[in-house]
Design a binder for these strands. Structure first.
Length: 968
DNA sequence: GGCTCTATAAACACAA
DNA sequence: ATTGTGTTTATAGAGC
């Protein structure tokens, strides 16, 4: 038989209680005792002999036992050992109890108003106050002795399946019988008697004995619950201190530590002095102690009404809170402080509000331990939908509903109510329906809900449309691509001289040409300009380049990151030169500049390749040319740039000074076209499903600085959907004229929807990466290590680094190379509904920043995009299959054979009159030595050289013009 | 880094 | 005076 707490306190942690604390609280209890409220009744006072508190008595009892060397009575001892002498005042005189259970050879003092008798606890799940041993016939919780307030007596409730014998009469399970002094009880084979204090001891009680009203008990219960709970709540923060005091207790308990005591007491039969709060808190108020076991009388129990009332209330409360649980569950929220507060005889109205029960993790069902994922607004809305009437729901009802629907809030600490209130007040989703009493009845604002739903649907639809437009766009691009290929194949099929299609041509490799062509195809075709501007030239270039792409070795979806280092270097050189050349010019706008640069680059590449092919030069002619005579390349570039400028803008490049220009070369000048962007064939242009890109470029005003769409597209990613179409920062919306966005873009929203996402997609991609931009912000940006960089000390015409020929390892990947998977597109998820978040025409973001005038300063910015594209991975990646050993041979041969200076200033001022063929014939036949010597030319010469050429490079322009004408 | 949304807490006012 | 309710403000974190 064990002694454990039979109070509502956590019996598993009796050590949490600080007897000294209780002792300190006792005076309060006495002072403010509940005597006035709940007068003691017939529960007679158990005499106190020593006048010590029961706490002390309890502790001292055990202490004394230990000190006196008395073994803690085990069940065996209790049942088998000689019963302690009742007259042993030392051992019992300090015991306070309401009753006593006299076993054959031991005693159990009932010091609480509820005592559980049962089998030896075999687990932590149940505890008993009186351990009847590990007998199968005894249930774990076989019987309960409790004080019945209404009947003002102790009673025995039989719970055990096997029933019990009361005064030799079998009582089956579920029966409750009154206990009187001397009642004989037999549970299983264990027999004992219930004894009450004698009237003598009752008389000795100093406590007044008043009649208790059962109603009071009920009231007391309520108040007690509140008080205790509140006290517990208030004392929550004292748990640690309690623990601290527990340590003190353990320390002060010099002989038997509490844990040991608990273990040892498992079979103690003597005193069931609860370590719990009630016993600890009540004794002084109870002010009872048993001076002598013989004091137990047949007559009514003696009590101090207050304490008994409290304990009864506790019992009732326990039963109420855990009706299936006797004794109360672990961690029942009652502790010393709580009980001490309970005893405070304060006016009821001042009693603090009942706090919420604090649940331990174990008490909370696992499924309710986690907070619902939904927000409070969702929470409330759900509850309102589920429970609300037309009148709405009061706050308390909402609380309740939330707790019922989301039991988590049944167990979680308070505080969420504040959030609920906050939400109700703040969220427009909720509205006050009607007033009721102090507060309002809340309901859902259905209109708002509908609006919200509407917006959500819109957003979802917009997102879906966005995705679809992307898909359509990709599809169209693919179709355009295929169509281009077909056209070009037809166009060049008979000639057998596809530019750049020579086996060894790495310059005009499909990768590069794809880059450019796709740039043109995407950018130009996406251009909503209704004017198919100069389709000839663009077609020419695109055809030429697309034809290169027709290389069957390159699959459509293949990553075009397979250029040789030579090619990359050559392209890098060309890019740099283009940038430099463009800097000197007044370009119209970004789109135009992009187009011009693209065309110029394409022209140069194509012409070099074609010339090389015509000359029978295998390998990488452009690389060789750059290697041997970069000045010539610059010259060609200049001419091509002029030609492209003329083609695109129909205006002679203002700065086209280096290469002769000839408007005549173009034949009859076309009427100035507003469209600044070269339009490919209409078939390619049409992108009906992409309104944003249909924004016309045509404008009588200075053309807006448009995002060179193509340049923002990671060409090498095609058919990747990662197409950036939205300008970043200062970039305006494609096709969205600054001044009349609605005109060019009928649906800004749709435009936005189409533009926004590509921006995400483009993030981190080569064409638009910040790194690329940065690189372009510094014209010498190619100074990145290992990049295709001209020496800085060779300004205009740098000699390519010696590593030019070293193909391997040259590739300096751009921030996002094609080999690297593109940045995961951030799903442009619709923003959560926001009351102040209308759909913004994001397409026009920062439009005002876009300059419609492209001056020299703006050109580099435009170049950034262009070069971004041109320097994307397709330019920088080394295609293994193009690692043609022939390249080395050619390069070696070029570098080995001296070449006369081929550059002869030619008098021409006509753009596009550069005779690429002748020029290249000369250039390519120029001994390297001569070129090398030229490379030593100070860069300061470059402008002069260009000027020279301006006057003398008419053939180049002519060639370009011829090309343009042929395309017409 | 800024913005928005959400959660949380606290202070305060008001009414029953 | 107390309590419940409602409002407002501030702060912090997360996501975009």
């Amino acid at each position: 038989m064990s002694v454990s707490s039979n109070t509502v306190l956590d019996s598993s942690k009796p050590e949490q209680l600080d007897p000294e604390k209780y002792t300190k609280t006792i005076p309060q209890v006495k002072k403010e005792g509940v005597h006035d409220i709940i007068p003691p009744v017939q529960v007679d006072t158990i005499i106190t002999k020593a006048g010590k508190t029961v706490d002390n008595a309890h502790i001292k009892t055990e202490k004394s036992k230990a000190k006196e060397g008395q073994p803690m009575l085990t069940q065996e001892s209790a049942l088998g050992n000689p019963k302690p002498s009742p007259t042993n005042g030392d051992s019992v005189s300090k015991v306070s109890a309401y009753a006593r259970l006299d076993f054959e050879k031991s005693m159990f003092y009932v010091q609480t108003l509820q005592v559980v008798l049962g089998r030896n606890p075999d687990s932590n799940h149940h505890t008993v106050d009186v351990d009847l041993g590990n007998i199968k016939s005894v249930s774990r919780r076989h019987a309960i002795i409790h004080y019945n307030f209404a009947a003002q007596r102790f009673e025995l409730s039989v719970l055990g399946r096997n029933g019990a014998f009361i005064n030799d009469t079998f009582v089956e399970s579920g029966i409750t019988l009154p206990l009187s002094h001397g009642t004989k009880i037999q549970i299983g084979t264990i027999e004992f008697r219930f004894l009450l204090p004698s009237s003598k001891s009752r008389e000795r009680s100093k406590s007044p004995s008043k009649q208790i009203n059962p109603v009071d008990a009920v009231q007391l219960k309520t108040n007690l619950y509140k008080n205790s709970s509140k006290a517990l709540h208030n004392s929550r923060g004292n748990l640690s201190s309690l623990s601290e005091t527990e340590k003190d207790v353990s320390k002060s308990d010099d002989d038997v530590k509490l844990d040991e005591r608990r273990k040892l007491s498992s079979n103690v039969l003597s005193t069931a002095t609860p370590v719990g709060s009630s016993s600890s808190s009540t004794p002084k108020a109870l002010n009872l102690s048993v001076s002598n076991p013989n004091d137990f009388d047949v007559n009514a129990p003696t009590r101090s009404g207050i304490s008994i009332a409290q304990q009864v209330t506790e019992a009732l409360q326990t039963a109420a809170v855990n009706p299936q649980s006797y004794p109360p569950p672990i961690n029942q929220p009652l502790d010393a402080v709580a009980l001490a507060n309970l005893k405070k005889k304060e006016p009821r109205k001042k009693q603090p509000k009942q706090p919420k029960k604090v649940y331990t993790l174990e008490e909370i069902p696992p499924e309710y331990r986690t907070k619902p994922a939904c927000s409070y607004s969702t929470l409330i809305a759900t509850c309102l939908r589920a429970r609300s009437t037309e009148k709405g729901m009061s706050l308390s009802e909402i609380y309740k509903a939330i707790q019922e629907i989301y039991p988590y809030y049944k167990y979680c600490p308070d505080g969420w109510q504040s959030s609920v209130r906050h939400n109700l007040s703040l969220n427009k989703l909720f509205k006050k329906v009607s007033k009721e009493g102090k507060g309002w009845l809340w309901g859902l604002d259905e209109e708002y809900c509908a609006e919200k739903e509407k917006v959500k649907k819109k957003q979802v639809a917009a997102a879906a449309a966005k995705v679809k437009s992307q898909q359509d766009r990709i599809q169209q691009q693919q179709q355009q691509h295929m169509q281009q290929l077909q056209n070009l194949q037809q166009k060049y099929s008979g000639s057998g001289s596809l530019p750049g299609n020579s086996p060894g041509s790495a310059i005009a490799s499909p990768d590069i040409t794809r880059s450019i062509v796709q740039k043109a195809a995407v950018g130009i075709s996406d251009s909503p300009s209704p004017t198919p501007a100069t389709p000839s030239s663009s077609n020419n270039i695109q055809a030429q380049l697309a034809a290169n792409r027709s290389n069957p070795n390159i699959r459509p979806g293949q990553k075009p990151n397979q250029l040789s280092s030579d090619t990359m270097k050559a392209l890098g050189y060309l890019q740099q030169e283009l940038i430099k050349l463009t800097k000197d010019r007044k370009m119209t706008d970004k789109a135009t500049t992009t187009t011009i640069l693209t065309q110029a680059l394409a022209m140069t590449i194509a012409q070099v390749n074609q010339a090389a092919k015509n000359a029978g030069i295998p390998g990488n002619p452009l690389a060789s040319l750059i290697e041997r005579n970069p000045q010539h390349v610059t010259k060609i570039l200049t001419a091509a740039l002029n030609a492209a400028t003329l083609q695109v803008t129909k205006v002679k490049p203002p700065n086209a000074t280096n290469v002769g220009t000839s408007s005549k070369a173009l034949g009859t000048p076309k009427p100035p076209q507003a469209s600044v962007v070269t339009q490919p064939s209409q078939a390619r242009v049409q992108t009906p499903t992409q309104p944003p890109f249909k924004a016309p470029h045509v404008t009588s005003k200075p053309p807006p600085v448009q995002v060179p769409v193509a340049t923002n597209i990671s060409l090498n990613q095609l058919p990747s959907p990662a197409v950036k179409s939205e300008a970043k920062d200062s970039d305006p919306v494609v096709g969205a004229p600054k001044d009349s966005p609605s005109q060019s873009s009928p649906s800004p929203k749709s435009s936005a929807s189409m533009i926004k996402k590509p921006n995400y997609y483009a993030k981190g991609q080569p064409g638009a990466s910040a790194d690329t931009i940065n690189k372009l912000k510094r014209p010498e940006g190619f100074s990145k290590p290992n990049s295709l960089m001209k020496p800085q000390n060779n300004l205009g015409h740098p000699r390519l680094p010696m590593s030019f020929n070293a193909r391997p390892g040259l590739v300096e990947s751009t921030p996002a190379t094609p080999g690297v998977s593109p940045p995961k597109p951030r799903a442009h998820q619709p923003q959560p509904y926001s009351k102040a978040q209308p759909l913004k025409p994001v397409g026009y973001v920062n439009r005002e920043k876009a300059s419609t005038q492209v001056d020299a300063n703006s050109v580099p910015k435009v170049d950034q995009h262009t070069v971004d594209t041109l320097t994307d991975s397709s330019f920088l990646e080394l295609p293994p299959e193009l690692s043609n050993p022939e390249l080395d041979k050619v390069l070696e041969s070029f570098s080995a054979s001296p070449t006369p200076d081929p550059i002869q200033p030619r008098k021409t001022d006509q753009v596009g009159d550069v005779d690429f063929d002748k020029e290249l014939d000369v250039i390519l036949s120029t001994p390297a030595s001569v070129n090398n010597s030229r490379q030593a030319t100070p860069t300061a010469e470059v402008p002069n050289l260009k000027r020279e050429r301006t006057d003398s490079d008419e053939p180049e322009g002519n060639t370009i013009a011829k090309m343009a004408k042929s395309e017409q």
